[in-house]
Amino acid sequence: MSRPPLPTRRTLLATVPAALAATSLATSASAAAPIVGGGLAFVMNSAAANIGVIDMAREREIARLPVFRQPHHWALAPDGRTLLVGDAAGNGLFFLDPARGTMLGHRPFPDPYQLWFSPDGRFLVTAALRLNRVYVWQPGTLRLLKRFDIASMPSHIAFAPDSSMVYLSLQGTDRLAAIDLGALALRWVAPVGPAPAGVMWHRGQLLVGIMGSDYVSVVDPADGRVRERLPAGKGAHALFLDPEERRIYVGNRIAGTITAYDAASLARVRTYDRPGGADCMGFAPDGRIWMTLRWAAHVAILDPASGRSTTFPVGRSPHGLFLSNSPTLASRQGQMLNSA
């Protein structure tokens, strides 16, 4: 099998934003991996200081890309060509080629625990969980637009579809925060339930996984008022909508289960047993759900129809998970490019 040509400095400069060109490119050659037809999965092994690159067809790790300390989450650049991975404890932002599974470079960055681009691609928002800060950056230049000191533990991020607002769970409290991206001002902070984790915009309202309890809060995005509580398992964490927008899945940390809701009615339709600390999920083209199991150092692949799952080992405390060929990703990417 022939190895594709390594990216040169010139091709890198042509494909990544200007800010990335200023990063260290020293690791690109040593971390090269072949393009894999079946797609690549990237697993952020948060207690192993590396990113596992998985051949999705073979369900096997083919490379480990070193980072400084703790890679947690990721964001795909609006052009889809650069995957950003935040190394929170290492205060570093790493840039990867999602098609090749190679490292492009890195740069110092304050505690990028969670990071996400707004749907219109105009803002990069990062949640510095350890430092109790939320940063709003200009993509491309990575110029800081505004810093918000918000206690405590800002964690998961969700945007309004028109990119007017960003919402963050404050995991060290019982609150959710809303920031107006037009005015760059904090709009409200409201109680939604103990240790809120995952946040998702869904059909005009916000869904928030309540990790300190056993439910998902349905929140009014206008004022943060809790409209409804959806029963989940103990330790409800992150939420994910499938590509067909039929089901919403939430992992329950204490219960060791995954709850599936009907996306239209928000009725609970099924509960799957999946111990090991299910965290980030990704939807594969074959309909199966990939998920990191943080305390088991494995990735699980769940067939939502049969309820059966398989696992394979990855690094310690796998957290963020990116599937390069996920239909969800294609849909979101198309949305971002159309609105940009």
Partner: peptide, 20 residues
């Protein structure tokens, strides 16, 4: 460590309001 986390630490944190 995973077993300890799942069967001892997390249940204690959950019961005492320390899931953060």
């Amino acid at each position: 460590a995973g077993w300890l986390q799942s069967h001892l630490v997390l249940p204690i944190l959950y019961a005492t309001g320390g899931m953060r």
